[in-house]
Design a protein around this nucleic acid. Structure first.
Length: 366
DNA sequence: AAATCGGGGGG
DNA sequence: CCCCCAGATTT
């Protein structure tokens, strides 16, 4: 089936979008204004790359404080390359998808030591770096280097699938959508075009109840012409989330410190800090639940926490005990008041807070 | 193509 | 409660 729009109409799409962007763009810490972009000014590649990695499957609001913290700690890619990995993981703690932090450090090292501190300016060059895939390579090339790259993320998939009423289910529709994006991406201001498409998806062409009356594409959108924009994009059905069970152990010594371990580098929460736990499929029967504790102690049940990961739900029974401090080679002790210096993922903060309710309050009482 | 990999906000 | 978010990597 041949449904290609004429080139003039494709150009008109970009023109409408950029005019909308000039009036409605969002101010974001890693952006240059459209006024500057029109004069050929491009954003700092380090800022663009850092923000794009943080924004992978992560909302703008969640990223903002982390972006500021990272720039404060490491103002340049060379500073990040020289930083201790533990410091990077600690700064990333809470943002999720921790492989991003490990790859961020590797990528900074590669840029600093193999590319003289400058990012590659082509999609292929960028994509060869750790943690940079199709999306991030295209986004950095377009936004930081003014390359006419076809940028495609979740927002753009939604906008384009509606604009052309593409009813092929995702992810099979991705090559189709990418072709459409390549068609409508302009030579001039490709970075602003990509950011405008994402702004449009975030503010107008939303997953539910899109504000079609305000959309610059309202006269072009085939889904709107069919009266059912909300039914796009079509997605494959997803599977149910299994439940895993386990127990976690918070040992507290007489200096108000708790015993911590480091998780293995690969896999779930790789390289992050944890309190000792059983395996996460173990069945807890109350009688034998403390057999997998790191050491014998008067373990006391403190209830349970629930944490939902991407592909399973975790229910951890929490136990605590006051113990005499003994140094061990499989972990270390850390004062509860200084837990912000640890790379603690959110599930572990939940566990510790369950055992020590005021552990993460700024003003703790003795 | 499917699975793995966090966490939070909005409807 | 469900859905989705400026996805990448491995199997």
């Amino acid at each position: 089936m041949q449904t290609d729009s004429p080139p003039l109409a494709q150009f008109a799409i970009a023109k409408k979008l950029l005019e909308w962007y000039d009036r409605h763009h969002r101010e974001l810490p890693w952006r240059v204004s459209p006024a500057m972009a029109r004069r050929g000014v491009t954003a700092d590649p380090y800022h663009v790359w850092l923000s794009e990695v943080m924004l992978q499957q992560t909302t703008v609001q969640a990223v903002k404080p982390y972006f500021a913290k990272f720039l404060d700690l490491w103002p340049t890619v060379n500073d990040l390359a020289d930083a201790p990995s533990e410091a990077v993981m600690t700064a990333w703690a809470g943002l999720g998808y921790y492989a991003r932090a490990r790859n961020l450090k590797k990528c900074a090292e590669a840029v600093a030591r193999l590319h003289g501190g400058s990012f590659p300016q082509t999609e292929d060059g960028l994509k060869s770096l750790p943690g940079i895939g199709d999306y991030t390579a295209a986004a950095v090339a377009a936004i930081a280097f003014n390359v006419k790259a076809a940028v495609m993320d979740g927002n753009i998939e939604r906008v384009v699938s509606r604009l052309y009423a593409i009813d092929t289910p995702l992810p099979a529709a991705k090559p189709l959508i990418r072709g459409r994006v390549a068609e409508i991406t302009p030579e001039d201001r490709p970075g602003d075009f990509a950011q405008a498409m994402m702004d449009l998806g975030a503010t107008i062409c939303t997953p539910k109840r899109p504000a079609c009356a305000l959309c610059p594409f309202r006269e072009d959108c085939l889904a709107l012409a069919g009266h059912d924009p909300e039914t796009f994009p079509v997605k494959a059905a997803k599977k149910a989330k299994p439940v895993r069970l386990g127990a976690a152990f918070v040992a507290i010594d007489d200096t108000d410190s708790i015993f911590l371990r480091r998780r293995q580098e690969e896999g779930l929460l790789g390289g992050m800090t944890e309190v000792p736990t059983t395996g996460w499929t173990a069945r807890i029967d109350g009688e034998t639940s403390t057999e997998a504790a790191p050491f014998p102690a008067p373990w006391q049940a403190e209830g349970a926490i629930v944490h939902v990961f991407t592909h399973f739900e975790l229910r951890l029974s929490v136990y605590s005990a006051h113990v005499e401090r003994r140094e061990r080679d499989d972990g270390w002790w850390r004062a509860v008041a200084n837990l912000d210096q640890e790379a603690l993922p959110t599930v572990m903060k939940k566990v510790i807070a369950q055992a020590i309710p005021d552990a993460f309050k700024s003003r703790r009482q003795g």
